[in-house]
């Protein structure tokens, strides 16, 4: 199946799920779904690790993992119902890093990438961050430290949908210089203008610089595919 059709069908699944269970954060889930489809269906190997630092996009990750057979039907079906181990902020399956508080995924990714280097493993570590969470001091520390240790096996992707929880990212703390900061710390950093183009993201993720950590700032649309996409209401209101 073509990558974009997988993304398209999962997009409909995620929208239905949020509508049916009345779950918030649909905007955040849909802006980064395509990146995760590219990673899981094209880029990553069995040795690689994925960390969803923006844990509030949990439903998008669950949909991808379910399609990959990593989450059984009954549990996927139970999202948002009483008794589900699948919290809205990523909490499943065992072995995935459970996150939801922002600013922590990159540092954990740094530790995993260091461990892979120690082991001589070829496995890469992919960390998906929100644009807002770049503001967390611990994310900036992670950029600095990964550069200093030249973690060529670490890839960070920022879901640059230009919205954070209360305002436009540009109006709070603009992301503008993040790629320059990362470059200064020793990363290879670039912007990808069509971050909701799954095929394009797969190509970008498959052609990264060697020997340095890689930062991709993926320009995306909050709530991609919804009638009210690119509107902050998609961060809070479930689709009707």
């Amino acid at each position: 199946m073509e990558l974009q059709s997988i993304a398209d069908s999962l997009r409909q699944e995620v929208i239905s799920l949020h509508r049916d269970r009345q779950l918030p954060h649909i905007g955040s889930a849909l802006s980064c779904l395509d990146v995760m489809v590219a990673l899981y269906f094209d880029v990553m190997t069995a040795e690689d690790t994925f960390i969803l630092s923006k844990g509030h996009a949990g439903t998008a990750l669950y949909s991808v993992q379910h399609r990959k057979g990593l989450i059984p039907d009954n549990l996927y079906e139970g999202i948002g119902r009483n008794g589900s181990p699948l919290a809205e902020h990523t909490s499943y399956p065992e072995g995935m890093v459970k996150l939801g508080s922002l600013g922590n995924g990159l540092g954990i990714g740094v530790g995993m990438a260091m461990a892979n280097k120690m082991d001589g493993s070829r496995g890469k570590v992919y960390v998906l961050l929100s644009d807002g969470e770049v503001q967390e001091g611990s994310t900036l520390e992670g950029l600095w430290i990964a550069g200093r240790f030249r973690l060529g096996n670490l890839v960070a992707i920022v879901d640059y949908n230009r919205w954070q929880a209360y305002d436009r990212t540009e109006d709070v703390l603009p992301l503008a210089c993040t790629d320059k900061a990362a470059s200064g710390y020793g990363w290879s950093a670039k912007h990808v203008m069509d971050g909701n183009d799954t095929q394009k993201m797969a190509v970008e993720l498959g052609s990264l610089a060697a020997g340095t950590p890689n930062l991709l700032i993926a320009h995306t649309t909050l709530g991609k595919g919804l009638p009210n996409e690119d509107d902050l209401s998609t961060h809070y209101k479930p689709p009707s």
């Binding site: 890093v97 600013g103 922590n104 990159l106 540092g107 954990i108 990714g109 740094v110 530790g111 995993m112 990438a113 260091m114 461990a115 892979n116 120690m118 082991d119 570590v125 001091g137 611990s138 520390e141 992670g142 600095w144 430290i145």
Partner: peptide, 20 residues
Amino acid sequence: IGLAEQSMVLIAIGMALKGK
């Protein structure tokens, strides 16, 4: 790790989850 205690612990989590 430097004066970055939060990252020190996060890095430790990552390493520990990889068996270190």
